[in-house]
Amino acid sequence: MSDTATTTAPTVTGERADLLAQLALQRHFLRHTTRDLSDEQAALRTTASELCLGGLIKHVASVERAWVGFILEGPSAMPDFANPTPEDLARRADVFRLLPGETLAGVLAAYEEVADRTDAVVAALPDLDASQPLPAAPWFEPGARWSARKVLLQIIGETAQHAGHADILRESLDGAKSMG
């Protein structure tokens, strides 16, 4: 896999190696959708949604950062989903687009930093079964707990889902495809 941004995972074996390899693959597919784009192209909305390629990279990095914070610190590391302020909502909307002064290279570099931290945390976790209570949110079962393993599966799934979104955005932009 060659990309402008690559992540070197710590040396791990077994289940952790499998989880990190799958996450690295999904990150590659997501980053690959931005190959050879200008900042202006990465900021363009190419479908009816508010999504742009640069914004998707920012969003995935933000979500991964929050979930890793959850693994380490519990629900206090997550945004307030139950009672967001108008400022919270505006800040969340800004994560889906490139703001003035932001560059594709900058968001890719920030994503690489998040990925490196995630990989280091996964390598150092004493127990993938350690769990935390989920924060209050309409989409979480009240009182549910997630293990570090389940959080990693969530990050992998979300990264893969957004890589698919990014592939559609890129094909709509200039016809380029990640596969096929």
Rank of each mutant, 00 (worst) to 15 (best):
Q161K: 15
D129I: 00
L72C: 04
D18W: 03
L25M: 07
V151S: 15
S76R: 07
H59M: 04
R31A: 04
Y111I: 00
M78R: 14
S178G: 04
A123Y: 04
R97A: 06
A160I: 10
F81G: 08
V63G: 03
L134H: 04
I156K: 10
A5C: 06
L173E: 12
L108H: 12
A93I: 02
L128G: 13
E64C: 07
H165S: 03
A130T: 13
I71C: 13
E102S: 05
L44E: 13
A5I: 08
D174G: 01
S2Q: 14
V121F: 06
M78D: 10
D36H: 11
F70S: 11
P75L: 00
E15C: 01
G164D: 10
P84H: 04
H28G: 02
R16Y: 01
L19M: 13
Q41R: 03
T8M: 08
D116S: 13
D88Q: 07
A160R: 14
T4S: 09
R92E: 08
T8H: 09
L20R: 07
M179T: 08
L134I: 02
P75H: 00
L51N: 13
G106K: 05
D167H: 10
Y111M: 12
A43I: 09
R91T: 05
P10T: 02
H162R: 11
R145C: 10
A136V: 12
F81L: 10
E50C: 00
A24D: 12
L98H: 07
F140K: 07
F140Y: 15
R45T: 07
D39I: 12
D36P: 01
L37F: 12
D36S: 05
T13E: 14
I71H: 12
E87Y: 04
S131E: 09
A136S: 14
I71Y: 10
H28M: 02
T33W: 06
G69P: 04
A144H: 08
T7E: 02
Q22A: 10
R117F: 06
V68C: 09
L134D: 04
E158V: 12
Q161R: 15
A90F: 01
S49P: 00
A166L: 04
R16N: 08
A144S: 15
T34C: 09
A17Q: 14
Q161T: 14
T33Q: 14
H165T: 09
L153F: 14
Y111Q: 13
D80H: 05
L89G: 01
A176E: 08
G101H: 12
L51I: 01
A137M: 10
A66Y: 07
R65Q: 09
N83P: 11
M1Q: 07
D39C: 04
P135T: 03
W146F: 11
E64M: 06
R92P: 00
K58Y: 02
G157A: 14
R27I: 01
D80M: 03
L134V: 14
G164P: 08
D119R: 13
A115F: 11
P86C: 03
V121I: 13
D88P: 05
V151I: 15
E40C: 05
D80G: 11
L53F: 11
L108I: 11
L98A: 00
G55I: 06
D94R: 13
Q132V: 00
A163L: 10
R31Y: 09
A124W: 01
D36E: 14
D94S: 09
E141N: 07
R92D: 06
E102Q: 15
R16S: 08
L169D: 15
S147P: 10
V114D: 09
R170N: 06
